[in-house]
Amino acid sequence: MYAMLRGMKANRDDKHLDALKDYFANHKALPSYAGIAELLGMSSRASVQKLVSRLKENGYLDTKVPRRLVPTAKFLERRLVGSSPAGFPSPAEEAMGDAISIDDYLVEHPSKTVLVEVKGDSMVGAGINTGDILIVKRESRPRVDRIIVAIVDGEFTIKHLRKDNEGYYLEPDNPAYPIIRPQTDLKMYGVVVGQFRKYDE
């Protein structure tokens, strides 16, 4: 089991925090003190206040908004449980480690970052499938040999940006598709810096 932070009660506070995270994911807000008591099965307001105090002390909650609990960046972090080999199996012992924020991990420049949903199969060789969500950093500087979102002849596309003696061109990662050389215009919309997809449960 992962080590408890200062002042937090073993097991129970962790379970309460997980319940609050699930609630926040579903409602996009934290419950009131009375709502916390109902959610966690606490019989007294004093118990709720002590829990909230511990969570605030450890950096999970804030009360900057009057009479309202607000989650911090730490609240939104996810536990990093180690690594798992994609080849031969290894002993299945869960090693609880640090926590990371998915947004912090994937997004370096929030003001320049957008999400793009993939349509089509021209980049399957690069592991990019239809329905995937790409994290794209907006920039106009050409990034040769990177996967980019480009505007070619007025249309958006996701391809490798290449350059040869004839100039810039776009290369798919699927042999069923030809390379694209712009007829009139090729603009760099952004460079792909990450991606994610959701699997069926």
Rank of each mutant, 00 (worst) to 15 (best):
L17E: 06
R67S: 11
A10T: 07
D164S: 04
L69N: 02
K56T: 05
V52W: 10
Y177V: 08
E171P: 03
G131A: 09
I179R: 15
K163N: 11
E171N: 07
E117N: 09
G127S: 11
I158T: 13
K64C: 08
A19F: 03
P110Q: 01
I128T: 10
H109P: 00
R12K: 15
D173S: 14
V52R: 09
Y169L: 00
A29R: 10
E155D: 12
A176H: 10
H160Y: 15
P71Y: 01
E201V: 12
Q183R: 11
A95W: 13
N174F: 03
R54C: 04
P31M: 00
S44H: 15
K74P: 04
V144C: 12
F196L: 14
L161M: 08
I100P: 03
L40D: 01
I36W: 11
H160A: 06
M42T: 00
L5D: 14
E57C: 00
M42P: 01
P85M: 09
A19K: 11
G125N: 04
A126F: 02
E171D: 05
Y33Q: 13
H160W: 15
P31H: 02
V144S: 11
N174Y: 01
K28G: 02
N129E: 00
K119L: 07
L115G: 12
L55S: 06
G82T: 00
G59T: 10
G82R: 07
N58L: 05
Y169F: 14
A25N: 12
R67K: 15
L161R: 04
P110V: 01
L76P: 04
G131V: 05
K198F: 15
K74R: 11
N165Q: 05
V116N: 10
H160P: 14
V52Y: 12
H109R: 13
L55V: 00
V107F: 05
K198R: 14
S43L: 02
N11W: 13
G82V: 01
T130K: 10
L106D: 06
G7K: 05
P66I: 03
D103R: 10
T184E: 13
K112R: 15
F24G: 01
L115Q: 11
I179K: 15
E139W: 05
L20Y: 06
M1I: 05
K50H: 09
I148L: 00
N11R: 15
H109F: 09
D132E: 07
L106T: 03
K163F: 13
P91D: 08
I133Y: 11
A37C: 08
S101M: 04
D18A: 14
E57W: 05
H16E: 04
I36Y: 03
I179Y: 13
F196V: 05
D18Y: 12
G82S: 01
L106E: 12
K159A: 06
